Amino acid sequence: MTNLEKYVNAFVEGLGVEEDVVNSKLEYQSVPEWDSVGHMGLISELEDAFDIEMETDDIVDFNSYNTGIKILKKYNVEI
């Protein structure tokens, strides 16, 4: 599985959305599933998928699909 596939899968599993919802336009609270509870599910899935532990500031700043890619670079994860 590629890093992009892992990334998309984290959204699908963490938020409980269909894969076709996950794209560069996806932002926090743009779908009902990405609320505060869904956000923590998403972060958990990402940490498990990439074997990382995100800092609190990064968890708070992770507010869109595109921002997430930038944040993961900090953890040496290239999407």
Rank of each mutant, 00 (worst) to 15 (best):
P32Q: 07
P32Y: 02
P32F: 09
P32L: 08
E33V: 00
E33M: 00
E33F: 02
E33T: 05
E33L: 00
E33R: 11
W34Q: 02
W34F: 08
W34A: 02
W34E: 07
W34G: 01
W34D: 03
W34H: 07
D35W: 08
S36W: 05
V37K: 05
V37F: 07
V37G: 01
G38R: 02
G38E: 03
G38A: 10
H39T: 12
H39R: 05
H39F: 07
H39N: 08
M40V: 08
M40T: 06
M40Y: 06
M40P: 00
M40G: 02
G41L: 06
G41P: 02
G41M: 04
L42N: 02
I43L: 09
I43Q: 06
I43E: 05
I43K: 04
I43M: 06
E45G: 04
E45C: 14
E45W: 05
L46A: 11
L46I: 15
L46E: 01
E47L: 05
E47D: 09
D48H: 10
D48P: 00
D48S: 13
D48M: 13
A49Q: 11
A49F: 07
A49C: 08
F50D: 00
F50V: 09
F50H: 04
F50N: 02
F50I: 09
F50E: 05
F50P: 03
D51S: 14
D51H: 10
D51T: 14
D51G: 01
I52E: 07
I52P: 10
I52L: 08
E53S: 12
M54H: 04
M54Q: 05
M54K: 00
M54V: 00
E55S: 10
E55Q: 13
E55R: 12
T56G: 10
T56W: 15
T56C: 12
D57W: 06
D57A: 12
D57E: 14
D58G: 05
D58T: 06
I59L: 04
I59F: 03
I59W: 02
I59P: 01
I59E: 00
V60Q: 11
V60E: 13
V60L: 14
V60S: 01
V60C: 03
D61C: 05
D61S: 13
D61E: 15
F62V: 01
F62G: 04
F62H: 00
N63S: 13
N63W: 07
S64F: 06
S64M: 03
S64G: 08
S64T: 01
Y65Q: 00
N66A: 10
N66S: 15
T67N: 14
T67L: 10
T67D: 13
G68D: 08
G68E: 02
G68L: 04
I69T: 09
I69S: 09
K70Y: 09
K70Q: 14
K70I: 07
I71F: 12
I71M: 12
I71V: 14
I71E: 07
L72K: 07
K73G: 14
K73P: 08
K73V: 13
K74C: 07
K74V: 11
K74F: 09
